[in-house]
Design a binder for these strands. Structure first.
Lengths: 323, 323
DNA sequence: CAGCACCATAGAAAATCATCTATGACTGTA
DNA sequence: TACAGTCATAGATGATTTTCTATGGTGCTG
């Protein structure tokens, strides 16, 4: 005995037809139901019998009844078809974006804001699994170069034809000092006055540092004393402990300004905006699309940034067009 | 969105190939393993992707890695293939006769003997499900006409070109009387002496009755007093209760002769034999074949009937040839 | 940068499939 | 027995599949 059944030739179509024949007990009925002719069904059945290598139905009093093997085959058919169907449902849900996975790469500072979008999105889409990568600007650029994530958030998107960027949220950089800082109440405070202060700065790879550096350069100012700390949070604590002043995203201090306050420095806040950044060429997982759509529909309400909605809508359109 | 996946076109072959690709992570490797060329595999994969409607693999550092959808598809493949495999194993077992069902129709008297074959067979083949039908000769003939069972046991098989019959066991008919019957010790006892006795007879449809009637007819004897009882067991009890004599298969009284004894009537026992009867044209379930094979191998030992083995062997050969 | 290992695509031929129409065979009922 | 309903078979046809060879692109690796 070789192989009992020629599995390789087995088609789901055949199983579908067979299952219906068993259910109706009639070739003609199945033919009608499936919009085929009776001989077609007859032939399909014959072929299935050949594949199985055994008779699968027999005529009993004008009805087609599955043989013993036929019964087992019917069960198999039901089983396989329903499993295929489950997969199908998964696929549909996946395509709808309600299920699946995507990854988003955040520049450090953005982690103070994105949870406010990712959180509700995750609530609404519990089957979606989001990987959040966090790093400073340089690290994110590296990941971006290697196409490691689906979406990135930068305040200064890399420039490339392949890049689509949607500025969705303003990211004002402010100068902060300790709670009872003497500068807090100075009118018309300017940088010259602060030149002697020690500034706690993020590392050079970070966007905040980069923006501040650029501003200093333009203003022709050189700081006397600086200290480098690679974490917004650590910087905030250090400021609160009177170790110096710092330039931080207002979002970093907005939620819980314990121990620090924004200083009314002229020219500040420095304006910058976060962008959603994706590659044109990359086909985003439907879940990522769904996230962006979600964001697009909630920015105005959540952050009062209607222009952000516009930008994200444009990005989505561009992605759509890219397909 | 129409249908997520074109299920109808899905083939097990495609799933087999795909599963192997995922396992090896290489088209070339799969091509070799499945004795195909690399472009073939490549194309199959492409087709599968079209059926699913989503990319299913992606290149990662020189390896083919399933995408998220691909992973789900791989699981599906494994699942479906292994289920098909289980069915395959069932099929093989079914073909081997170690699993499945058959029905056997027994003439009443044979029920005293067949358990001695069916019992051990059932022990050895617990997955085989046997339906035993029992009736008198006429009832069994009706079933036989309607092709209702796979195997029959008759002492006088119906004659037909379509019929294959193997005499497998002698069925001696003996005259029995009550335990302390006065005829028991009579030398050279003959029928004339018993003419005045009442005879308890099976109903006309039965084979035992038929055989005895024929013998009486040949011997030119007419019985004075008879009573008809449609059950061997009831007849035996009646005989034990001194209600008369009877002709029964020796097998009926052999096991537990409580209350009755065989009478040494000249010309007795009448010789007859049970036959396995099958129709040439009917394809027996493998389990039925296996039963006959089993019988063929155990008659000599169980009943000391080596000729029966021969006859059954011939029947099996004839069936084989019929295919 | 030449070579190698791998994958994708094109092109082609043979096999198989999915269907249809037409027709024959069987079965049970009027 | 004739009719109606149901299934099987034959023959035909276009679509799809399977599979090959040849060839081109890409990305490591020495």
């Amino acid at each position: 005995m070789v192989l009992a059944m020629k599995v390789r030739q087995l088609t789901f179509r055949l199983l579908q037809v067979y299952a219906d024949v068993v259910r109706t007990g009639s070739l003609t009925a199945t033919a009608n139901r499936l919009h085929l002719t009776q001989p077609t069904v007859s032939q399909q059945l014959k072929r299935l019998r050949e594949i199985v290598g055994e008779p699968i139905v027999s005529h009993e009093e004008g009805r087609l009844v599955p043989t013993e093997v036929g019964q087992a085959l019917y069960q198999l058919s039901q089983d396989l078809l329903s499993r295929a169907d489950v997969f199908n449902q998964y696929l549909e849900e996946y395509n709808r974006g309600g299920r699946g996975h995507f990854s988003i790469g955040l520049v450090n500072t953005a982690q103070y804001v994105l949870p406010r979008l990712l959180g509700p999105f995750g609530q609404a889409n519990p089957q979606v699994d989001v990987t959040v990568e966090i790093g400073n600007r340089q690290q994110m650029l590296n990941r971006f170069e290697r196409h490691e994530d689906d979406i990135y958030v930068f305040s200064h998107p890399p420039i490339d034809d392949d890049v689509l960027a949607a500025p969705f949220l303003s990211n004002p950089l402010v100068v902060v000092g300790p709670q009872h800082c003497r500068w807090a109440s100075v009118e018309g405070l300017n940088m010259d006055a602060l030149k002697e202060e020690r500034f706690l700065l993020r590392e050079p790879g970070s966007a905040t540092r980069h923006t501040f550096d650029a501003w200093l350069y333009n203003a022709g100012i050189e700081l006397r004393s600086t200290q480098q700390i690679a974490s917004n949070e650590a910087i905030r604590l250090a400021v609160a402990s009177n170790m110096g002043l710092a330039v931080l995203s207002r979002h970093v201090v907005a939620d819980s300004p314990n121990g620090v306050q924004e200083l009314p420095l002229q020219g500040f806040p420095l304006k910058s905006r976060w962008h959603f950044v994706v590659r044109r060429q990359r086909r985003l997982p439907p879940a990522a699309i769904r996230f962006l759509s979600y964001v697009q529909g909630s920015l105005a309400q959540a952050f009062d940034e209607p222009e952000g909605e516009m930008a994200v809508a444009e990005l989505l359109q561009a992605l759509e067009a890219e397909r």
